[in-house]
Simulated assay, not measured.
Amino acid sequence: MSKYLVNKFLYTVDRDTELTERYREDPAGTVSWWEAEEANRILNCITAEKTTWLAFTDEERTALATHDHVTLFGLGAHPFLTLTLWIAMFERDFDEPLGMQLDYAAQLAHLGLPYPDIAT
């Protein structure tokens, strides 16, 4: 499990409005594209600077491709990163105030302490 890579995906997608919409509409395609084209770029460096070894596990790829924040949390993805991205993508689908956030929390309610380690 590469918590770093999953968190990097969540962070970079959340900071680009067009990429956020792309991920909402085509999650599997966005995950595949991002892993192939963006995963090995070094944050805050020139485009030519890349690593060569980062890749999602099958479980990470599936959770990202299905918008499964519960599995991502269980794998150690930072909950603030998933929450802010999910707000950007799904808050508009709920009529009541804080509906998305309440749904997000309800889906995680079965989890108890100690929570998964979110350190990277």
Rank of each mutant, 00 (worst) to 15 (best):
E59T: 09
T47R: 10
A48N: 06
A48S: 12
R41Y: 09
T52R: 08
N40Q: 06
W53V: 10
E38D: 15
W53H: 13
W34P: 02
W53K: 11
K50Q: 13
I46E: 15
A55E: 11
E37V: 12
P27F: 04
N40A: 02
F56M: 03
I42C: 07
C45Q: 14
T47F: 04
N40G: 01
R41P: 03
R41A: 09
S32T: 14
A28F: 07
R41D: 08
W53A: 12
F56R: 00
E37P: 07
R61M: 05
K50G: 00
T51Q: 06
A36F: 07
R41E: 13
T57F: 07
I46P: 02
V31F: 01
L43C: 11
S32H: 03
T57H: 03
T51H: 02
T30G: 04
S32I: 08
I46K: 14
D58T: 09
W33R: 11
T51M: 05
T51G: 01
A36C: 06
E49N: 09
W33I: 06
T30Q: 07
L54D: 12
V31H: 01
D58H: 03
A48F: 12
T57P: 01
T57I: 08
I46Q: 13
K50C: 08
W34D: 08
R61T: 02
P27K: 09
E59Q: 08
A55Q: 12
S32Q: 10
I46A: 13
A36P: 04
A36K: 15
E37S: 14
E35Y: 11
R61A: 05
T57K: 00
P27Y: 03
A55T: 12
L43D: 15
E38A: 15
E59V: 08
T52F: 05
I42P: 02
T52Y: 04
A36Q: 15
F56H: 02
N44T: 01
